[in-house]
């Protein structure tokens, strides 16, 4: 009979090689990440100045219009995408039982939409809002386009959070005479809130980092603070592109730092909020 122990030993060299490979791979990944962050910080931190952050563009290059523009875009896109996305997910999970033909069609549609390159969304936004609606370049058009772009992600992650809520909780609520609506709002949504909030914050991260969509929809007007939502404008990510391609490498590097810090803060916030919500709904022991 074959000795099982020696069979295991025969593979030991392979396991060892595999382990070395994985360790090296991890090292390379970490190194790349650190290199990017370090490079951006080293080049950019010293270039940040009060004038750049809050100055008047007519005096010297400033990213104040971009900061305001970015906040506007986040506001518009989240206000539109979150209610629609969360409501769609509730419908899919709680009312169609997460299966059936409609469900599969929507599943494929959202996955496909999530995989479309953002420039395609940009082109769509351009043709609809800039050209067909005749709005020209506008923060509103850009914000709506971004909302459409992040919608599939919000639907998918909310769906996953809802599905992850134990079926026993729903049954428990129904068995106490709670209606479907009460069960959804008092039991299911609070249990899924951590996941939903994380999804929203990650979506904000995508909005903040997006540039392709905005080139085609808000027009990259870097010098003026948008007078209204119908005005053209800029965002932090667009400013990096603008500065780098118009002979302001220092300003580009400094803007990159601001954007990087913003995204890191968002991710930390996502983690912290998720934890707080879990605690308040008693999910941790």
């Amino acid at each position: 009979m074959k000795n099982l122990n020696s069979a295991g030993n025969g593979n030991r060299k392979l396991f060892f090689a595999l382990r070395i490979f994985c360790t090296v791979a991890l090292g390379v990944s970490l190194l790349c990440l650190l290199a990017v962050v370090a490079y951006v910080l080293i080049n950019g931190v010293t270039k940040i100045s009060g004038d750049l952050l809050f100055g008047d563009y007519s005096v010297s290059p400033s990213i104040l219009p971009a900061i305001i523009g970015t906040l506007q875009l986040v506001g518009i896109s989240i206000l539109i995408a979150v209610p629609i996305g969360v409501a769609s997910a509730i419908f899919l999970v709680e009312y169609t039982n997460n299966k059936g033909r409609l469900m599969r069609v929507i599943q494929v549609a959202t996955e496909t939409l999530a995989g479309i390159p953002s420039i395609v969304y940009g082109l769509f936004g351009y043709l609809i809002f800039v050209v067909a609606f005749g709005w020209g370049y506008s923060m509103l058009g850009g914000g709506i386009t971004l909302a459409i772009m992040i919608l599939p992600t919000i639907v998918r992650s909310t769906q996953e959070s809802l599905v992850a809520v134990q079926g026993g909780l729903r049954e428990g609520a129904y068995a106490l005479g709670a209606s479907k609506v009460r069960t959804i709002f008092k039991i299911v949504l609070p249990s899924a809130a951590g996941g939903i909030v994380t999804a929203i914050i990650l979506a904000i991260g995508r909005v903040v980092s997006e540039s392709a969509v905005l080139i085609l929809t808000i027009g990259m007007v870097v010098k003026d603070i948008p007078a209204s939502l119908m005005s053209p404008g800029t965002s932090l990510a667009l400013d990096i592109y603008y500065f780098a391609s118009h002979g302001y490498p220092d300003e580009a590097a400094a803007t990159a730092v601001v954007l990087l810090v913003f995204v890191i803060c968002l991710n930390l916030l996502a983690g912290a909020l998720g934890k707080i919500i879990k605690k308040s709904t008693g999910e941790t022991k």
Binding site: Q166, G168, L169, E171, G172, A173, Y174, A175, L176, G177, I187, P190, S191, T281, G282, E283
Partner: peptide, 15 residues
């Protein structure tokens, strides 16, 4: 269901 309560196999306290 209010009048006919139910207790399940696996305890299911709400979070």
């Amino acid at each position: 269901r209010k009048n006919v309560g139910m207790v399940f196999q696996k305890p299911n306290p709400f979070p």
